[in-house]
Write a protein that binds this DNA or RNA. Structure first.
Length: 300
DNA sequence: AAGCAGGGCAACCGCGAGAAT
DNA sequence: TATTCTCGCGGTTGCCCTGCT
C-alpha cells in the first residue's frame, strides 16, 4: 500500500545550505538529472537533506539563468498586472518573468512592491463634492494629469499595465476589484484612463484570457455585494474611499454601515472579496451596464 | 559601542491534487 | 477502490543585516 516515507526527518539537515552542499546538488543534477524523484535524490547525491529542501534549493538558487534582485519597472508592471488579474499565484507569475522564481517574486511583492503600491494611497488631491459617485468610466471624469502632477499618479502609471480584460465596464476578477479597491479614486481614474494607452503585454493578455474561465468559476456570488463606492469622506478634507456592504439574501436586502477604506486592512479587503467569491451557484461577476455613466460599482 | 527595531530574504511548513501501489 | 506518497504551491517563520538611538 502506498510508498515509503519521503525522508527521516530526524536525520536530515536543516537550515542554510553550505557551498559544499550546493556544489554536490548542482553536480548531481547536472550529471544525473533529478530522475523524476526528488525524495530519493539527496541520498543518491550524498546529501543529508530532505528531498523537498533539495528541490527548493535547486529551483530557487542553483538552476541556470536564475536572476535575483533588481526588479525592473517592466517587471513591476507585469507583477502588478498579473496580481490584479489572478492574485497570488506566484508560480504562474514567475512563469512570465524570465529567470525569476516564485519565491523571489513573492518576497519582492510582500516586502517592496505591495508597499510601493500602498504608498500610492497617500492622501490624494482635493475631493469631489460629497456623495458624488466617481465617474470612473465616464468621459466627463476630470483628467488626473490636469488636476495634479503628484508622484503617486506617476507611480500608478508606471505600475499598472494595459490589461484588455479590464476594459471599461468589464472589471472581471476579484483581484481586479481588489486592485481597484486598494487604489484611491484618483488612482482609479488614472488607471482607467491609461488602460487604453499603455503598453500592451501579449503574454499577460494570453494568460489572463486563459485564466478567465477559471477565475470566473471560482468567483461565485455568495450574495454579498461589495460596492466600491468611492466618494469623499467629508466635503472639506478627506477623500478616503468609502466601502459600503450590501447583503443580498434572495429577496431580502440588507445594507451595512459604510466604512472608510482606512478601516479595512488589506487582508480584510482580500477576505471581503474572497469570501464573497467562494460559494453559491451564481457566477455573476459582472459589471452592471445599466448603471449610469457616472457610477462605478463592482459587483461580486 | 551596545542595544534595539525593522526590513529583507532563505528556508520551512502544511495543504491539495494527482500518481503509485 | 482505498490508502499512501510525491510534487508543487502559497503562506509563514526565523535568521541576519542595517540603521537608528
Amino acid at each position: 500500500m502506498g510508498r515509503a516515507p519521503c525522508c527521516d526527518k530526524a536525520n536530515v539537515k536543516r537550515g542554510p545550505w553550505s557551498p559544499e552542499e550546493d556544489a554536490k546538488l548542482k553536480d548531481y543534477i547536472e550529471n544525473q538529472g533529478t530522475g523524476g524523484n526528488w525524495i530519493a535524490l539527496p541520498q543518491k547525491a550524498g546529501l543529508r537533506r530532505c528531498g523537498k529542501s533539495c528541490r527548493l534549493r535547486w529551483l530557487n538558487y542553483l538552476r541556470p539563468n536564475i536572476r535575483h534582485g533588481d526588479f525592473t519597472e517592466e517587471e513591476d508592471k507585469i507583477i502588478c498586472g498579473l496580481f490584479a488579474s489572478i492574485g497570488s499565484r506566484w508560480s504562474v507569475i514567475a512563469a512570465h518573468l524570465q529567470g525569476r522564481t516564485d519565491n523571489d517574486i513573492k518576497n519582492y511583492w510582500n516586502t517592496k512592491l505591495k508597499k510601493k503600491l500602498l504608498a500610492t494611497m497617500a492622501p490624494p488631491p482635493p475631493p469631489p463634492p460629497p456623495h458624488h459617485h466617481l465617474a470612473i468610466a465616464s468621459s466627463s471624469a476630470s483628467s488626473p494629469s490636469s488636476s495634479s502632477s503628484s508622484s503617486h499618479y506617476n507611480m500608478i502609471n508606471n505600475l499598472l499595465p494595459y490589461n484588455p480584460s479590464i476594459a471599461t465596464n468589464q472589471l472581471n476578477t476579484p483581484h481586479q476589484g481588489m486592485m481597484m479597491t486598494m487604489m484611491g479614486q484618483q488612482q482609479q481614474l488614472l488607471y482607467q484612463e491609461n488602460m487604453g494607452s499603455m503598453v500592451n503585454f501579449p503574454n499577460i493578455n494570453n494568460l489572463i484570457m486563459s485564466h478567465q474561465e477559471d477565475i470566473q468559476k471560482q468567483s461565485t456570488n455568495k450574495g454579498i455585494m461589495l460596492l466600491s463606492d468611492v466618494r469623499s469622506g467629508s466635503s472639506t478634507t478627506s477623500t478616503v474611499p468609502m466601502v459600503k456592504m450590501e447583503y443580498h439574501d434572495h429577496d431580502h436586502h440588507h445594507e451595512e454601515e459604510e466604512r472608510s477604506m482606512e478601516d479595512y486592512g488589506m487582508e480584510e479587503i482580500k477576505q471581503l472579496i474572497s469570501s464573497s467569491c467562494t460559494s453559491s451557484s451564481s457566477n455573476s461577476l459582472w459589471f452592471d451596464e445599466n448603471k449610469t455613466e457616472d457610477k462605478f460599482m463592482l459587483y461580486y
